[in-house]
């Protein structure tokens, strides 16, 4: 056990060192979420609260405040979904088989990579959070809420980083993994309440915004659970503490299942 922990720690250090030496990638992947934050809140400004606004997120909630939780989740999603690339690069460079010939605990090679990817993802989410705060987003639940936000997106990140590793080991080609990852990240985001709530309650009239099938589909989408959970913590008068257990349980289960998938693929496919 101590061997596994020490090996995982070494793998994390190695991965983080490589990432920190290429800071341009860390900033490049921050560019998109921040751009969305700046751009979409302008485009959809009228949907939010305020004078003449449609109040989609509820009375007096700006579009920015309702949208920022989704962008924070998206930052971690995009950051972790490509975690499998590093593993493929190690395999292609012959680093993997050399490592496997040492007594290193097998599972550490995957867990270390997943933890490193999520660490970077959460730090990036933190930066997006700060940008959102500067733009005027205020976390209604305070410091405990912020920590819970990191827990939620961290669990989501673990799930997707592990999934990405499993996928990479299964598909074995960088181009294919790239295509598949792109194929699922965007739809997962749109098939959620990232940009729009499922229903809007305006002057006592409930309007269904998401089509019925999408409303059902999002029940199976871990991204939506993260977005809903984070939004609960950020928006004033929106959160109900007892509502938080559902995203937490679903995301924890998602993380566990994906870590099992990733390590199984690793045992089966990493030559």
């Amino acid at each position: 056990m101590t061997d596994a922990l020490s090996d995982t720690w070494q793998v994390i250090l190695r991965d983080l060192r490589v990432r920190i030496r290429m800071p341009v990638f860390i900033f490049m992947s921050l560019f998109q979420p921040i751009l969305w934050l700046l751009l979409f809140t302008q485009i959809f400004k009228a949907l939010g609260g305020g004078a003449g606004g449609l109040n989609v997120w509820g009375p007096d909630v700006s579009y920015l405040e309702g949208f920022a939780p989704g962008v924070i989740v998206m930052t971690v999603l995009f950051g972790s979904a490509f975690a499998g690339f590093g593993t493929l690069m190690d395999i292609d460079a012959g680093i993997m088989s050399k490592m496997l010939a040492t007594p290193v605990t097998r599972v550490s090679i995957i867990t270390g990579r997943v933890i490193a990817a999520v660490t970077v993802g959460v730090v990036q989410a933190g930066i997006v959070f700060i940008v959102a705060a500067i733009m005027g987003v205020h976390v209604a639940t305070g410091i405990p809420g912020v920590l819970l936000v990191f827990l939620l997106v961290g669990l989501l990140g673990i799930g997707f980083a592990a999934f990405s590793n499993g996928l990479a080991l299964l598909l074995r080609r960088q181009e294919t993994v790239m295509a598949v990852v792109n194929l699922f990240t965007m739809p997962l985001m749109f098939m959620s309440t990232t940009m729009m709530p499922a229903t809007v309650n305006n002057d006592g009239v409930t309007v269904q915004i998401l089509p019925h099938w999408l409303d059902i589909a999002r029940q199976f989408n871990p991204v939506d659970y993260a977005v809903v959970g984070v939004r609960n913590l950020v928006l004033p008068d929106y959160y109900v503490w007892s509502d938080l257990w559902k995203p937490l349980v679903v995301l924890a289960a998602f993380a566990v299942v994906m870590v099992v998938f990733g390590t199984m693929m690793f045992r089966a496919k990493a030559e």
Binding site: R14, R17, V18, A93, G94, I95, M96, K98, M99
Partner: peptide
């Protein structure tokens, strides 16, 4: 094929 990490 050498298995060294060239980014380290």
């Amino acid at each position: 094929d050498v298995g060294v990490d060239e980014r380290a």
